[in-house]
Design a protein around this nucleic acid. Sequence first.
RNA 1: GCGCCUGUAGCUCAGCUGGAUAGAGCGCUAGCCUCCGGAGCUAGAGGUCACAAGUUCAAAUCUUGUCAGGCGCACCA
Length: 571
Amino acid sequence: MSIILIKKVIRKSIVQSIKSCDYDLNINEKDIKLDETKNKDIGDISTGISFVLSKKNQQTPIQIAQNIIENISINKNLIIKISVSKPGFINFHLNIKTLYENLFQIIIKNKKYGQSSIGTNKKALVEFVSANPTGPLTVGHGRQAVLGDVVSRILEFNGYSVEREYYYNDAGRQMRVLEESIKSRFIQIFDEKNEFPEDGYFGEYIEDIAKDILIKELELKNLKELNIFLTNLNASDKKLHLKNIDRINFRKFGEKVIFNNIKNTLKRININFDNFINEQKFYDDGSIDSILKIFEKTKLSYKKDGAVWLKTSNFGKEVDTVIIKNTGEPTYRLPDIAYHTNKIKRGYDLIINILGADHKDTVPDVLNGVKALGFEINHIKVLIHQFVSLIVKNEKIKMSTRKANFVTLDDLIDMVGVDITRYFFIMRGKQSHLNFDIDLAKKESDENPVYYLQYAYARICNILKFLDEEVNLELKKTNFNLLIEKEEISLMKCLNCFDEIIIDSLNTLEPQTLANYLQQLATSFHKFYANHRVINKNKELTNSRIKLILSAKIVLENGLDILGINHPEKM
RNA sequence: GCGCCUGUAGCUCAGCUGGAUAGAGCGCUAGCCUCCGGAGCUAGAGGUCACAAGUUCAAAUCUUGUCAGGCGCACCA
């Protein structure tokens, strides 16, 4: 029986016992907090409920604990022993049979082991990355990309059918600046003195795009040919080439190149989006107009200084917010509201939006706007993650695509590989302000914790290769009772917790919970491996241990699959 | 100035719905392969859990204040 169900049984038994002891306290099962004990000699699961009870009842915690365990009735097949310790804890000792039974379940269920049915027949939408195509994805985007993908995988493991969605805007100010930047670099090819826009995109990729455009214009094959062409150019030729510049669509070309690059990068780290949604859609289908009319009608918006304002002060904000500039152009909030109502109308059971900390303050505006339009928003979850800071020569640098002080996600993948890239971002909580030191990343990549997990997996695969044909591996004939060593038991206990970890990561949507668990599991396996031989002269014991490591293999595999990390059989 | 996030070992970070002796990796010190992979295992050094008060039987965890850092507070997205 899984740890979740065992805990349920314990809670129920405690509540019944408390009632039969006539203690004065209204307590239900949810109030009984159960903890894993650190020291397994004391017990496996403990509770401090006696401390709570001793307050209203004139007895010491120890006395209460004694009373509770004297009056408790609990299935001996699950809990073999209950004890009281020091100031008044009640400790439950698991019956080892439950661990054996769990191994059996793991092997039967295999890839399905640990899955819950919470999301069965439910649809979820996860929106993430959503970077406008103004430059390559940076390690900053990488954090969000991996977080979003793993959140999606957690949902899928729990039965949800998930759509991954990327929302972008290729019409705003950013894109105009991009266009000017490319154009300026293009002109600079012929006229070095041409001024580059002060707030332009300074990255080298802009020059590359400009050159690509020229290569295409001149119908050349590659950069080499272009360089030859340019060295042979005289002054009057240069002017000639700048003459036709207005018919070139710099923005469109740039967008195409950059978007391809972004999609490529995502593909490299095994992230595949189902939908790409362009903001323009909501102008075209009239939803922005109709929302505007509703706001006007319900007096949630008003005109002032030539602009249209949304009364965000009605939602508890200090000031109102402009939704249409005096130029007649909407700010991003309006299409965002339209987009979110569109998400809701598409009928998902769960809508997740992953955003960087810089967007946090806009969330209430959008959600309140959607709510004001009469939509239910309880099934929308917004996950905020903190930034990745770049450490260069021991100094923190804020990454900016515009200022071109960033490390691209592609560079990171080139340096350390896909698995370490993914693991790097999910082994830490999304609220941590990550420091990314590129030199350290290179240096540590050989010693990275992700290898520790993969090594455990590869070791298991390797052992299985040495199996003697004479060993009877029939599951029903397996004598689990032979697994009694300390390391075997702690490995089995670890395996027993997987389903709880899964539920936990579903509730919190924090992937690092799972990453931490897998580290523990790998440790537990490596310790077992170091102390005991799986394949040994005793064929019956060999079979039992094979079942144990097979279970570890299955759980490692299921866990790594959720994290989207490979588990090679050889390293 | 206001709001949100963070401060834990030399470094990078777990632990945070309060529970028993605060953990991991890297780095440092010393051990362990006749034997299924030493990318591993064992032992050790290293901590006023930023600081201060409070709540509690119990605080790294909750509350308040202070200090330090990140991010917001646009007719940018």
